[in-house]
Amino acid sequence: MEFIETLISGLSMGSTYAMIALGYTMVYGIAKMLNFAHGDIIMVGGYMIFVTMTAIGNPILGLIAAVLFCMLLGVTIEKVAYKPLRGASPLAVLITAIGMSYLLQSTAQMIFGSAPKMVIVADFGNLQLGELKIPIYTLITLGCSFVIMIALSLFIKYTKVGRAMIAVSEDKGAAQLMGINVNGIITITFAIGSALAAFAGFFMLMKSPSLSNTLGAMPGIKAFTAAVIGGIGSIPGAMVGGVLMGVVEAFSLNVSAIAPYTDAIEFLILIIILLVKPTGILGKVRREKV
């Protein structure tokens, strides 16, 4: 029984990680950059939910506001900080992204203070199935993220914009010659990634109501790790990696002897995967072309 409970909580945590990892992997696939500020967009989404909830009191409206605001923020960050550096060395882009992450964190701390805020989105209680006790929020998280991931996969596979995204990630120059607006596609990618981050922020607040300016930092790093484990640039890889990460976390948190070392274990998995299979579980090997 405990096994199933842990598994479900792991799957729910994992699907949150998968949502964040999708943002990382899509941006990496299309803009070829590691968006370090992605984790902090979760935090901004969380604060947006907090602001709307204190003003109106409706969590659904809060989620909508957070999604819209994060999309706007993601696109703005891309236009202001990353676009001028297109064509510059990857190191420069990476450092700017780190600076952006730092900027978001310190701005949030300046506006909302360093004390954590309590945001109780909704209390759904538990579902009792015989001996099995499952918190309802885990089921909501699982269901929502499942729907979102299916929708995203269909969007990428069957719409014109989605096909254009695949084209840009394969070969930017060729895509441009085929009449695809590469800048527009990159903007859309950042918007989608940020919207997913806002959803992840909502799920995280459902799990624990404490909100501070470092809410997104650690989950962001873990989700990136998940994206690398699954194969960076691959959308199914991000999902697999995220779920794997969540399940590992849930089970190691459940064993009291190794519980304090949970973070260390997750990062150790990353280092081992990079040693054994550097492209990740579902990543493709790309030949370097001169």
């Binding site: 900080a81 420069a92 700017t96 600076g99 952006m100 701390q109």
Partner: peptide, 13 residues
């Protein structure tokens, strides 16, 4: 922290 972040972004860009 804000100052550090701005140094990083502005100088690198």
């Amino acid at each position: 922290d804000l100052f550090y972040a701005l140094i990083l972004i502005i100088l690198v860009i």
